[in-house]
Design a protein around this nucleic acid. Sequence first.
DNA 1: TGAGTCATGTAATTCGTTACATGATTAA
DNA 2: TTAATCATGTAACGAATTACATGACTCA
Lengths: 182, 182
Amino acid sequence: MANRSRTKYIILGMLTIQDMSGYEITKAIKSSTQFFWSESPGQIYPTLAQCVKEALVFCNDEASGKNQRAKKTYTITEKGREMLAFWLEYAPQPDVIRNELLLKLFFGRNGKAQDMIYHLMHQKKANEAGLSFLNSLQNKLSLKNADSPDLKYWLITIDYGIKITEAELSWCEAALKVLEAK
Amino acid sequence: MANRSRTKYIILGMLTIQDMSGYEITKAIKSSTQFFWSESPGQIYPTLAQCVKEALVFCNDEASGKNQRAKKTYTITEKGREMLAFWLEYAPQPDVIRNELLLKLFFGRNGKAQDMIYHLMHQKKANEAGLSFLNSLQNKLSLKNADSPDLKYWLITIDYGIKITEAELSWCEAALKVLEAK
DNA sequence: TGAGTCATGTAATTCGTTACATGATTAA
DNA sequence: TTAATCATGTAACGAATTACATGACTCA
């Protein structure tokens, strides 16, 4: 089943916010969607080139003779907007879920309880850091984009991050209690 | 960076519970770890063969002359147990997180609000079903494995599922309120 | 006798990451 | 001047899924 990749759509989506270069798209993903969607640069650049070929985006080619590695920015085309809208209509496909911490815990009795406790403490700290990142992101976004039609949707995704991280944190604490008892 | 696959470890782990065939391992994964770890049969069989080659598991070969497709069961070896224990010590590696529902919502203003509401309602139903599955799994496991040293760990993973699903459910409801409010 | 499930395995293909190569610009 | 970051891109590789091929057993 070909074409299951959604790199194309995150690129198109990012370009609805503003014109960007491949590098900027990569950075934008890292700073805003990282907690529910990630992409590597080695995926972004070829897909971007493919989007140009399909006329979904337009390349504002600044390639002067001198600088071969000049920054190129991309603009989404009408066709690109249509493709994005079309994709949005369809039911999201369930993604592979893989959580190595859970897998280790599931087989935990074959290892040292102390190691499991250590893994959980590490996870707890990561959750605490994640929570403070999400809270500051929430504030920053709300202030900077008060008038943006995107804001409502962005806040929904951040709310997801916060609720899930809080739940994970409370699970960590409960699990630690179970393993530390006795 | 080779050998990042953890299929080997889930196979070894499953074989610490009891001897199983490849088919049974696949089924066991589907019925117990599916909500945090999945594997496809096309991954299980070759990895199982590899484990035999590395002497991590032993094949109880019932291959009589007649039935070429007889069920083969596998037993974990001492070396396999060591390998599993070794893996358990190490900090879990962060796995790729991909949530297409979130990605669609993030770019939601480029689509119809009604579609986003529909996607969320679908997710809400899936969470409700998941919750009832996890609750019955919790009961079944507790009764059937009351004396098993694995039980404590298994319940921790189920508790994760329940807490996360509940959080997702409450997020769905909150998000629906935001989007349905005019 | 036909459907469904039990059961094992392979091949093709896709997806995506990592590592590398290259070079410009900027701030200490 | 040198380290960091900005910036684009390719090649090699690995992981994993899907689809397919094969065939036995069981139950209605």
